[in-house]
């Protein structure tokens, strides 16, 4: 039985009114289960980043429903929504978004402390999250001491700290070179395999290929999707 972490049900998003009205999303149906990474691909302006902000409760859709771990976002008060965002969701952005004046560990435990955890109690899950991205030895350093790839791994640790299970990643490898980007994707993938779930927004096919499913968005609509084929022996019968 797969546990559904996120469901978008007929989600539409429009900006403006009358002649200036712009439809950013139109009738989006999408689910993400635990252990599943879904890549969203599309051209610039296709609506993929809007989809992520709606899924993360940062923007309220014009119509349709967003359900995160069984919670209907439309039914929550702003305060409840903020709590849900802190406890269930983790965002990973292209430009890392770490706070330079906080140590690596403090950056990771920040969502827990905002949620009322005293610093001491936040430390253990923070160190666990850092260990999961193989950066335990950097806990007391500052973001500026880290490479871009390491900073993004810290952002992944922050996204999953304390059992957060839905990772929403917007072009997380966009600012990284190809080899470093791959290390970050490997970490993201391993967190998902360890029980999280996630959406990976990307325009890069090589990165999308790390996902279990790839959906395409065009003019705000999901057009269709590519799914991982059943396991076959690679290069079987190849005669090159």
């Amino acid at each position: 039985m797969t546990e559904e972490l996120l469901r978008l049900d007929g989600v539409s998003m429009q900006y403006g009114t009358g002649e200036t009205r712009v439809t950013a999303l139109s009738g989006i149906d999408l689910t993400v289960s635990r252990g599943e990474l879904v890549a969203v691909m599309g051209a610039s302006g296709s609506g993929k980043s809007t989809l992520l902000t709606v899924a993360g409760g940062l923007t309220t859709p014009t119509s349709g429903e967003v359900i995160v771990e069984g919670n209907w976002l439309s039914q929550l008060s702003p305060r409840q929504l903020a709590t849900l965002r802190r406890r269930s969701l983790g965002f990973v952005f292209q430009d890392f978004n770490l706070i330079p004046s906080l140590t690596v560990l403090e950056n990771v435990t920040l969502p827990l402390e905002l949620d009322g955890f005293p610093g001491k109690r936040a430390k253990r899950p923070g160190l666990d999250a850092l260990a999961s991205v193989e950066l335990l030895d950097k806990a007391d350093r500052y973001p500026v001491d880290l490479s871009g790839g390491q900073q993004q791994r810290v952002a992944i640790a922050r996204a999953v700290v304390g059992g957060r299970s839905l990772i929403l990643a917007d072009e997380p490898t966009g600012a990284l070179d190809s080899t470093t980007g791959e290390v970050v994707l490997r970490m993201l993938r391993s967190r998902v395999d360890a029980g999280a779930g996630g959406i990976l927004v990307t325009h890069d096919a090589r990165h999308a290929a790390w996902a279990d499913r790839i959906v395409f968005i065009r003019d705000g609509r999901l057009v269709d999707e590519a799914q991982t084929p059943p396991v076959t022996t690679l290069f079987e019968g190849a005669d090159r």
Binding site: R186, R189, A205, R206, A208, A209, W210, A211, I214, F216, V223, D224, E225, A226, Q227, T228, P229, V231, T232, L234
Partner: peptide, 19 residues
């Protein structure tokens, strides 16, 4: 689009083997 899906499936399979 049909071709893109087929190529992406191939890419996913290669990536999975790499993983």
């Amino acid at each position: 689009q049909a071709q893109r899906q087929a190529t992406l499936r191939n890419l996913q399979e290669l990536t999975r083997a790499k993983r």
